[in-house]
Amino acid sequence: MPNQQKKILFCVAGVLSFACALGVVAALGTPRWMRATFLCTTGALLVNASGPELDKFTGEVHYGLFHGEGVRQCGLGARPFRFSFFPDLLPAVPVSVHINVLLFATMLAVLTMVVAGFFMYNAVGKPFETLHGPLGLYLLSFISGSCGCLVMILFASEVKIHHLSEKIANFKEGTFAYRTQSERYTTSFWVVFMCFFVHFLNGLLIRLAGFQFPFAKSKDAETTNVAADLMY
Rank of each mutant, 00 (worst) to 15 (best):
W190Y: 15
V159D: 00
C195S: 15
L164V: 03
T175Y: 07
G174W: 11
F155T: 04
A156Q: 10
H163S: 11
L154W: 13
V151K: 09
F189V: 09
F189W: 12
R179N: 06
K172T: 06
T186Q: 09
K172M: 04
L154D: 08
H163Y: 11
F176D: 13
F155D: 03
T175E: 11
V151Q: 07
E166P: 01
M152W: 08
C195G: 06
S157R: 11
M152S: 14
N170S: 11
R179G: 08
T187S: 02
V151D: 14
E158R: 03
L154R: 05
F193W: 14
E173L: 05
E158P: 07
A156D: 02
V159I: 07
K167C: 01
K167A: 06
S165T: 01
S165I: 00
V192R: 04
F196R: 10
K172S: 06
F176A: 12
F189N: 08
A156L: 11
V192Y: 08
V159S: 13
N170H: 05
V191Y: 08
F196I: 02
T187V: 07
E166C: 02
I161T: 14
E158G: 11
Y178S: 05
S165V: 00
M152F: 12
E173C: 06
T186V: 14
M194I: 13
V159T: 02
G174F: 08
F197M: 12
V191P: 01
H162D: 09
T175W: 12
F193V: 14
S188H: 13
S188Q: 09
S188G: 12
L164C: 04
F197N: 02
L164P: 00
E158F: 04
K167S: 05
Q181N: 14
Q181C: 00
G174M: 13
V151P: 05
L154H: 11
S188E: 13
F193H: 12
M194V: 09
T186R: 11
Q181V: 11
R179I: 09
T175Q: 15
M194L: 15
V159E: 05
S188N: 10
F193C: 14
S182W: 06
S188F: 03
